[in-house]
Design a protein around this nucleic acid. Structure first.
Length: 958
RNA sequence: GCCCGGGUGGUGGAAUGGUAGACACGAAGGACUUAAAAUCCUUUGGCCAAUGCGGCCGUGCGGGUUCAAAUCCCGCUCCGGGUACCA
């Protein structure tokens, strides 16, 4: 903190950029008030021309990577809720830059997506055209907000230069398998060598179906057979899969794209259907995806969502022989201890053995049931959860622990996609099995008793006993053991006798990676004699072809089947499916590190420097989609030596949604008369949404209302206090509710800096919160007040080189510290308050000292970059404020002689007291107890205890 | 059902076991102005008291830990979100 010239020097500088003022000067005002429009425009141009936010690798500085989830550019443009996260990340990026980090802060577009394709189907407009137009609009709106993105690094998922690497990664997945023994992906070529030498031998691989063959058997297979086998192991594989088929969209959806049996986009019904589909073997990474959650700084709730989605459960696989057949039935159970209580078995209707084991007398009913169950849509299944249905197959399983013969049923409460699609039913200790047993009059056996309780008659039970606590009974060699001991003992026995083994099961399923759509990445795959083969990497990118229509063909093939010459040079047909939306977004954060590289995904140098994202901002709706796939993608790229960090997103926050605040009018039924809010209960009224733009502070602009819609031109009103008061409610922001706020209007009225400040001021970044336009006025006042600190009454720039007073230094450094503390814990709303307090206090002192105001401009710059930049240049700097340094906090300025103590008696605050900061506890105690005020609260009694927290509080216990 | 969040003035929110309601919005009153806008000043959790003294109550409800609890613990309640025949 250097000394300034002691001579008071009052600087009056004419506005250096005042040339283009347009009608802002009034007769009185000579200089200019806070002219945000001109300021913002000027600096946005300057930053763009000078590439102020361009960033390159700089080994002399530590890196910091700040990322927003890139948007899908929809036709509707941005509303006030979208920029919330972008503003937050921009503040962090700017702050970290001031702190000396080399900050990577890119932006791009998730440009493949359904809406552009739907629009293409309706209008014939190429999705690329629609997408380009929407991107332009997004870009324009974002530019007006003053973000510090390095736009030279922009990526678009639909750009062949970008999706070349999406296709490339797919090829690597295709050429890899997952070795559970080494816990990583390895080349399929090595797997082939292994098969040639030792067959499946001691192979421990992630696969679709466990297979066993010898080297000789492998060598005896022809090429097609071998390729078929390899497909069982590839990380990107083609398989017959039960998929979520959406007839309305003509495509398959991933599990996370389906909600309650309807498509998430569009809300169309979804059916289950068996189709040949590309899938990614995400399940191979289940444990690593789970473990990795311990190493990231994410909201606990989001981690929990992912843990549930991965759904690890520990238990055992148990083999049941089927009476009269060679086959054995494998079931998964988390409760092997209850094996003695299994009284029947249930298979999913789709289970492969159903046809084989069903007896002749049962076959008609079973077939009917299977047909009925498989044709039921997902939606019906969910709607009828409580209906119990099933059929007996006529076959019996043999319980390995006691040889008991138990009936095998089929029922749709057993899901084909989970575990092995078959269960042992223990009605005594599983509520679903219990309900099923009661419904079909199957026996129930108790095998667990609560600690200290005697067994009871299960026929009397109202519900099963599911808890994992108690002692085993009626259970052979595990009698008397606790549940936990029983589980261990049973697993040991199963393993020793070849009847099963301890097993960990995961709920997470492989990701279906095919879409029957046009607007997506083509697969770099062709078919030779029906066998899928990878394109050579030199052929990439395989560009999306032109088609004459965006609909499926008459034969039901995807739109790409319409493309002319959709085949390789040799004439082999190319794959006609395209990749799903999450393909392009799974690795975009890596490409930003080196977006112009035409030789590789990203260079070793780039990944070695930027490593991973330090701070990621986006919505929590991506918990089971993008954030799982991206983590999978990154881990795979780690395995093959490209990525260098196991977790791509170190710290993540979910920005809350901004809700709309709707206004209502109350129309008397059957009339054109509207009743003010508080009088509405005296009439029979209908509530109607009213455009929030014609309501100010819940008071309706009656004339504007009459003009709003022709219907209301002759409306009558019943007023209160001469005003029409509207009702209000917090709802989703939507056009139909007439409550949409768009950022362009607000920027026009208040400027981007004010909007940025206000969005942060609304509340904690992760909260969902209502948008209330009224509050923005307060922030706008703050900006004007701040501007005035640097200007005299005629709005001439005027700062003094005089040395600041102790009080002024103190205000500044208190602010420096608080702002910094708050930014570091991402409490961005309280920073705004702190800045307001600072400006209020400096205004009270009429402070215009350069030494204070320069630092203030820097502190302000992450939040209000345009205004700060203007002030910075007015202060005489020629370089952007972006290259300034965050002022170091100096504790000296906060040093005080006196501290204010809160004095309480029995915990109740009674008065405050200023005392020297260095006074000892003994001294304080003496003074406080000697005060006349204290006598009143001591009531003549002697204090039992006196607690003194230095410089804070004194508590006297009486 | 299960799993997460969360209940603080008229409103958004602040308070990292230590003066509850910072900072704003809104409201009421006032100054300036022919007027409006802009700006500035005062009051603003409730109740009692009334001279600006002062007191009592108060962070969804009931207990507890502590010198001290919005904050930690136990039980309940209400609201929001996620998820669900997952064996």
């Amino acid at each position: 903190m250097g000394c300034r010239a002691p001579v008071p020097l009052f600087l009056v500088t004419s506005h250096p950029f005042a040339g283009s003022q347009r009608g802002f000067a009034t007769k009185k005002i000579i200089g200019m008030d806070y002219n945000f429009k001109e300021i913002e425009q000027r600096w946005q141009q300057y930053w763009d021309r000078n590439k102020t936010y361009r960033v390159d690798i700089d080994h002399s500085k530590p890196k910091y990577y700040v990322l927003d989830m890139f948007p899908y550019p929809s036709g509707a443009g941005l509303h006030v809720g979208h920029p919330l996260g972008y503003i937050a990340s921009d503040i962090i990026a700017r702050y970290q830059h001031l702190k000396g980090f080399n900050v990577l802060h890119p932006m791009g577009f998730d440009a493949y997506g359904l809406p552009a394709e739907q629009y293409a189907i309706q209008t014939g407009t190429h999705p690329a055209v629609t997408t380009e137009k929407n991107i332009q609009r997004y870009r324009h709106q974002m530019d007006k907000l003053g973000f510090s993105y390095d736009w030279d690094r922009e990526v678009r998922t639909c750009d062949p230069f970008y999706y070349k690497w999406t296709q490339w990664t797919f090829l690597q997945l295709f050429k890899s398998w997952y070795n559970n023994a080494t816990d990583r992906a390895e080349p399929v070529s090595e797997l082939e060598d292994r098969f040639t030498v030792s067959g499946t031998g001691d192979l421990n691989a992630a696969c679709t179906l466990p297979l066993n063959f010898t080297a000789a058997e492998w060598q005896a297979m022809d090429h097609a057979q071998q390729q078929h086998i390899l497909m069982n192991y590839r990380l990107a594989y083609l398989d017959d899969t039960m998929v979520n088929w959406c007839p309305a969209l003509g495509t398959v959806l991933a599990n996370d794209e389906v909600k309650d049996g309807f498509s998430e986009r569009g809300g169309h019904p979804v059916e289950r259907k068996l189709m040949k589909q590309w899938s990614l073997r995400v399940s191979a990474y289940a444990q690593r995806l789970l473990d990795g959650l311990n190493d990231v700084d994410w909201p606990e709730s989001l981690k929990e969502v992912q843990r549930n989605w991965i759904g690890r459960s520990e238990g055992a696989a148990v083999y049941f022989r089927i009476d009269g057949f060679e086959d054995r039935l494998e079931v998964f159970t988390t409760r092997p201890d209850t094996l003695w209580g299994a009284t029947f078995m249930v298979l999913a209707p789709e289970h492969e053995l159903v046809g084989k084991i069903t007896t002749a007398d049962r076959s008609r009913k079973v077939r009917e049931y299977v047909t009925w169950a498989t044709n039921r849509s997902e939606r019906e299944r969910i709607a009828e959860v409580k209906t119990i249905t099933g059929e007996f197959t006529g076959a019996y399983g043999i319980n390995p622990v006691n040889g008991a013969k138990i009936p095998i049923w089929i029922a749709d409460y057993v899901l084909a996609g989970y575990g092995t699609g078959a269960i042992m039913a223990v009605p005594g200790h599983d509520s679903r099995d219990f309900a099923f047993a009661r419904h079909f009059h199957l026996p129930i056996i108790q095998v667990v008793a609560k600690e200290g309780e005697l067994p009871s008659d299960p026929d009397e039970w109202k519900e099963s006993y599911d808890a994992k606590e108690g002692v085993m009974i009626h259970s052979g060699f595990i009698n008397g053991l606790t549940v936990t001991e029983g589980i261990q003992a049973t697993i040991r026995w199963l393993q020793d006798h070849g009847n099963g083994f301890g097993k960990i099961n995961y709920r997470i399923r492989d990701a279906i990676f095919s879409r029957q759509r046009y607007w997506g990445e083509p697969f770099p795959i062709y078919y030779r004699n029906g066998i899928p083969c990878p394109l050579d990497e030199s052929e990439l990118p395989l560009e999306l072809p032109e088609v004459d229509s965006y609909l499926p063909t008459e034969t039901g093939d995807p739109p790409l089947a319409r493309a002319k010459n959709w085949k390789t040079r040799e004439g082999y047909p190319l794959e006609t499916n395209t990749m799903p939306g999450f393909a392009g977004s799974s690795g975009y954060y890596l490409r930003y590190m080196d977006p112009h590289n035409d030789q590789e995904y990203f260079s070793k140098e780039a990944i070695g420097y930027w490593r991973n994202v330090d701070f990621y901002v986006g919505g929590d709706e991506h918990g089971t989609g993008h954030l799982i796939y991206a983590r999978f993608w990154n881990k795979f790229l780690c395995d093959i030596g490209l990525a260098v960090e196991q977790e791509p997103f170190r710290k993540l926050i979910n920005q809350g949604k901004i809700q709309g605040r709707s206004n209502f009018v109350y129309r008397i039924k059957g009339s054109n008369t509207f009743v003010s809010h508080n009088l509405r209960n005296s009439y029979d009224t209908i509530r109607q949404h009213v455009d929030i733009h014609i309501v100010d502070n819940d008071i309706l602009d009656i004339e504007a209302f009459r003009r709003w819609q022709p219907d209301f031109a002759n409306a009558d009103f019943i007023l209160e206090d001469g005003k029409y008061i509207c009702g209000w409610e917090i709802e989703k922001m939507s056009k139909s509710k007439h409550n949409v706020q768009n950022p362009d209007d607000l920027i026009e009225k208040y400027g981007a800096d004010t909007l940025r400040l206000y969005e942060m001021f609304l509340g904690p970044i992760e909260y969902h919160k209502p948008w209330d336009t009224k509050g923005i006025e307060g922030v706008f006042r703050f900006m004007k007040k701040c501007w005035r600190l640097y200007h005299d009454e005629q709005f001439h720039f005027a700062v003094s080189d005089e040395s600041p007073s102790q009080a002024e230094w103190k205000i500044l450094h208190k602010t420096i510290k608080r702002v910094e503390d708050d930014i570091l814990r991402f409490s961005l709303n309280t920073v705004v308050s702190t800045l307001m307090i600072c400006v209020n206090e400096l205004t009270d002192l009429k402070c215009n000292k350069r030494a204070i105001l320069e630092d203030l401009a820097v502190i302000l710059s992450p939040y209000a970059p345009h205004t700060a930049e203007e002030l910075w240049h007015l202060l005489g700097h020629n370089e952007s404020i972006h290259f300034a340094a965050y002022p170091p906090y100096n504790e000296e300025f906060l040093r005080e002689d006196l501290a204010t103590y809160a004095v309480s008696f029995n915990g109740k605050l009674r008065f405050t007291l200023d005392l020297p900061v260095d006074m000892t506890s003994d001294g304080i105690e003496k003074i406080v107890l000697g005060l006349e005020k204290s006598q009143k609260w001591l009531e003549g009694k002697a204090p039992r205890k006196v607690i003194i927290v230095p410089r804070k509080i004194i508590n006297i216990v009486v």
